[in-house]
Design a binder for these strands. Sequence first.
RNA 1: GCCGAAGUGGCGGAAGUGGUAGACGCGACAGUCUCAAAAACUGUUGGAGAGCAAUCUCCGUGUCGGUUCGAGUCCGACCUUCGGCACCA
Length: 818
Amino acid sequence: MAVGYNPQQIEGKWQRRWAEDKLYQVTEDDTRRKWYALTMFPYTSGDLHIGHWYAMVPADVHARFKRMQGCNVLHPMGFDAFGLPAENAAIKRGIHPFTWTMQNIANMRRQLKSIGAIYDWSREVITCLPEYYKWTQWFFLKLYEAGLAYRDKAPVNWCANCQTVLANEQVVNGFCERCGTVVTRRDLAQWFFRITRYADELRQHDGLDWPERIKIMQRNWVGKSLGAEIAFSLDHPGVSEKEIRVFTTRPDTVFGVTFMVLAPEHPLLAKLVAPERRAEVEAYIERSRRRTDIERLATEREKEGMFVGAYVVNPLNGEKVPIWTADYVLMSYGTGAVMGVPAHDERDFAFAKKYSLPIPVVIAPPGWQGEELKEAYTEPGVMVNSGRFNGLSSESGIAAVCDYLEEKGWGKRAVSYRLRDWLISRQRYWGAPIPIVYCERCGIVPVPESSLPVLLPENAEFKPTGESPLKYCPEFVNTTCPRCSAPARRETDTMDTFMCSSWYFLRYASPDYEAAPFEADKLDYWLPVDLYTGGAEHAVMHLFYARFFVKALRDMGLVSFGEPFQRLFNQGVIIVERQKMSKSRGNVINPDEYVAELGADAVRAYLMFVAPWEQGGEWDDSGLSGISRWLNRLWHLVLEGYDPGEAVGAEARAEAERALARITHQTTRKVTGDLERIRFNVMISALMEFTNYLAKVKEAGSVGKDAWAGSIRTLLLLLAPTAPHLAEELWQRLGYDYSIHNQRWPEWDEALAKDEEVTLVLQVNGKLRDRITVPVSIIEEEAKELARGSKKVQLYLEDKRIIREIYVPGKLLNIVVK
RNA sequence: GCCGAAGUGGCGGAAGUGGUAGACGCGACAGUCUCAAAAACUGUUGGAGAGCAAUCUCCGUGUCGGUUCGAGUCCGACCUUCGGCACCA
């Protein structure tokens, strides 16, 4: 009897050996196909919980598989280290964000090493270190030079009591999470990136192997609409603007306009408000400033608005149109003004009903007899009550109205996007400082590249209230102008952390390079990423920003590719007691104790098995012990020795060996395919079935020693990516050469994997009546004959007439009778 | 609210293109071993019903309807749960 499986004794040993041998360190190698397998790097929150393992382990298994297939695999790891929680810890517990972050990294690195992954730790990147954020700042300068960075006013969440800017997360139902004060919007000058310049390209995913749903989400995020901009003329005493432009996707409905709505933030609003309405309208604007965009756009909420007391004129029919303001119109979309066509837009309909505005029909629904509409008709139709355009279909009407607008100079065809420019300014300490200086004489001056990095001052004060600590740090703020050397002030905002994560995958190619963010030939070798894995919560923001970054760099000539991630895969979430893990619920599963008890290999295999990776599943201790039992059985199966039974005849032995070869080759084929297609849970099932089959073979002693050894060897190779320590140990104990992880992935032979017999299902009228075992080579006529010979089938054919027979080779025969 | 997913035994899940529903595992039950228990091993296990029995019949993939010889899979409507919504990352 072999000594039992004891993961504690083997896992640490092999991890040390692999590290000593630098088994997983990689360099560029033109003789092998490169494979860049990237997992989204973790935020430095403190502890690695089982959810992190769920992101890392299957990705590592796949990377190991590619490595055994002969690829030169880069599988790096690093830390997303700037961000709000570090600053909160500073305020709450008086610990410096740098200290807090680096302590967390030390702990997380230790935990990550216990996974037994093939991370090349010599390439680790940490975004909060000056060596890294120097280049984050450098990219800001490049984008600024390229005209992709600009300054503009934008609202922030403002708590008047704390005198501070709040993240959306810190606003709970419109109140400050700390002090309960009502949160308002406040306009600040902030930095933006012109991501909208790339809107059209970002909608395209040509040649990318991405989940369809993510591509759809990104396209919807861009939200491209074709339509027209129409100028309604304005003649208001004391206002110089002579028109208000609206964007509409339905220029064919322009004759049905009965009101215009301006966003509460619209710059003309204040100038147009009639004196007797001013108080009311201003109160309304104030109220809407407290609402989030989500609330404002909710179609279920009752539409509320205010008449401004001014009018514009519809250029197409000369009608006077009252101007309203309502917060369902956003300043960030289109022109911040919409034309109200109640008959043909649901929101406008509800609005007009509430305020008793007329609802003239200008697009006739099918069979319309001139009656009033009970609800908005938003489908295309035939234009009516539309002057010269009457009788046109919506489709040709849109073109005709656009032509007419352009001819008269009243408007033009236009495209509008839901996508907004990327606001990167954060009024916080723990981020990369924006490398800009404000000089009274020269204005906005970028910090020269040679002066990078703009270091974060270490001695900033973390008051529980106030703005960015950088504002109160004179030695940081006060500087001299790089251009004219006059006294100047530094920008005190730091950059959005999405900025750090928009290029980290480039840094892994040459993490220590000092002359530039990356070394060109190494970048050319490794990039783009072949398989990027991470949570679906990043479907739009992180993935979108990273794509924008790479496209901008390509246009600057810095990189030669336009897409960072060739294949994308999103894993699901591990839940506990049907709930998402969170510190506040107190249901966070720490993997350390499970690793100590059952071993990293068992935890790895369990996470692979628990559910389809993209779906996620429930953490369950007893499921884990089931996996542990399997690995234990496998250990004994391999080490206990094998005795071929003496009583087995030569013919039976040959037959048993043929069967074993068939199962071995079928398993190899299945496991390979499942790894390729990222279907890890069924891959583990296949390995379990293979183990069970081998256990039966062993009990019977039905095959020869060589056949047995060959199948065991294949089993270990197939197991190696999932349970790397166990496979290495068994490999060594069987006397094979170190290391199993340098072996070639097994191949299969289709001829040997082929089944000799199949089960043919016999149905009558689609109901299963019998099954028969037939040779795979059976032809249709033979199958039909066998079916008629089946007593069970005959029972259902009595007194019936056969109408049809449907034969699916190798699957079934369905006899349709009457 | 809008956008995007997912609903299959007591539980996690399996069934690449419509063709044996419930693989594999957990749990439960029974047995072997033991003074006993744990561990391990063996067997049974979707529900209802019939039969001494091998076995047989019917019902079953969130709900309702449709297409088809045949639907977990395709189509339509609805219900529930989950992810994102631009300063959590």
